[in-house]
């Protein structure tokens, strides 16, 4: 009896909170039929925004996957870093989680905006950071940095350094050891972290909004376009782009589940 009640309650909560809203978006996108959806999605500004989001996602994912794995290796294995320093860095890695995306964006503006020394210097060299693609990439890098690191570090700790030491004893140097011994063990965690990063890149809104200035056809991303459409009461168009983003997220979610199951096997 209790069992029925609890299960029922949980299903209701999930339904109200997660499933119905998802369907509502899908329904909203087709308010004006298939053509309305298609038009909303293939407007030139929507295509441009999706392109920007795509570029950011690709660049950020590659950069953070690389640096994330390297930093995890150093934080777990390096003997050239003091223990205290490692612990400090380990807690700093988490900070972007605690930073509101808007604040993350503000940080980049404060540090590299046109009024700052660094921004002015780069501006004179012809590189705009803020209100341009580089700043948006940096802001997203900041926000997504912990994702890969947080996935990889526990696995590295769990597998221990003995297999790597065994490889060293058999004559393998760092490079060979990494690819032949360490990588096969952390591979699925990296994939999982990368998927999380991609999802976050696609969805990043606050930080990018602040840094980009949300300039049409220049720095507008998919999420900031949705925001602007809503502000302009252009709900159907907003729904189309939102549905595309939501579909992407659900796909990533499925992929995440799959990666998680692989992670557990290995």
């Amino acid at each position: 009896m209790m069992r029925r009640l609890w299960i029922g309650l949980t299903v209701v909560v999930f339904g109200l909170l997660l499933i119905i809203p998802l369907f509502r978006i899908a329904q909203g996108a087709f308010d004006s039929g298939w053509s309305g959806f298609w038009h909303g999605l293939t407007r030139p500004e929507a295509l441009h925004a999706l392109l920007m989001t795509g570029i950011i996602a690709v660049v950020v994912t590659i950069v953070n996957a690389f640096f994330g794995v390297m930093l995890s290796l150093y934080l777990v294995r390096a003997t050239w870093l003091g223990r205290k320093l490692k612990r400090l860095m380990n807690s700093i890695v988490d900070l972007p989680f605690a930073v509101s995306p808007v604040i993350g964006g503000l940080m980049i503006v404060l540090l590299m905006g046109p009024d700052t020394a660094l921004g002015a210097l780069l501006g004179r060299a012809g590189i705009d950071i803020v209100y341009a693609l580089p700043g948006m990439v940096v802001a997203t890098l900041f926000v997504t940095f912990p994702l890969v690191v947080r996935e990889v570090i526990p696995v590295l700790q769990e597998i221990g350094s003995q297999q790597e030491e065994a490889a060293h004893m058999m004559g393998a140097y760092a490079w060979t050891t990494f690819w032949r011994v360490t990588w096969p063990s952390i591979r699925w965690s990296v994939v999982y972290g990368v998927v999380l990063t991609v999802a976050r890149c696609l969805g990043e809104f606050g930080a990018v909004l602040v840094v980009s200035g949300n300039i049409l056809f220049k720095t507008q991303t998919a999420t900031t376009l949705v925001y602007q459409d809503v502000e302009n009461f252009n709900l159907t168009a907003a729904n189309a782009v939102a549905l595309a983003l939501a579909a992407g997220s659900v796909l990533l979610l499925l992929f995440m589940e799959w990666a998680k199951s692989r992670k557990e096997v290995h």
Binding site: I159, G160, Q162, Q163, E165, A166, A167, M169, R180, V181, P184, S185, H266
Partner: peptide, 13 residues
């Protein structure tokens, strides 16, 4: 040198 580790450290994969 050949080294045998306490928990063998065999390559799992």
């Amino acid at each position: 040198i050949g080294f045998v580790f306490q928990n063998y450290a065999l390559f799992k994969h």
